[in-house]
Amino acid sequence: MKHILKLHVNGEDFEIFTEMNKTLLEVLREDLGFTGTKRGCDLGACGACTVLIDGKPYLSCLTLAIAVQGKKIVTIEGLAREGKLHPLQKAFIEKGAIQCGFCTPGMILTAKAFLDEHPYPSEEETKRAISGNICRCTGYVKIVEAILSVNENQ
């Protein structure tokens, strides 16, 4: 059964005529075309589908779209501002923290929420913060380096 769904994504309001049982991941990818949000397992076990809801990281594959109406949703496409990359995006690129890139959007958004709350984290805290995001390519070394580097020089 289709209904109108109202979502606020990346600073814009969307009205979507779609099924009410859809997950946020499905609506973002299929109805809105925000394919930067990745489907890695559909079970909440890999973190690739992580988006920010009111600044907190959520697994969009386990979140019903209807439940997050009226909230501020940010996907990887909404992180760069006015053509300027977010410092985390810059750090991931420059430190070689991206290989295949499939975990990257979820990883960066998880890291963003984490750094917003813990601007000067330890390595151990950082590892714990991203432990719900699986990466099979990098061994996490450069990802942790990238996250730690963001506020290092400030």
Binding site: F34, G36, L85, I93, G101
Partner: peptide, 9 residues
């Protein structure tokens, strides 16, 4: 890398 970091990839 930039495409992958911004969701364009």
């Amino acid at each position: 890398a930039w495409e992958k970091a911004t969701g364009q990839a």
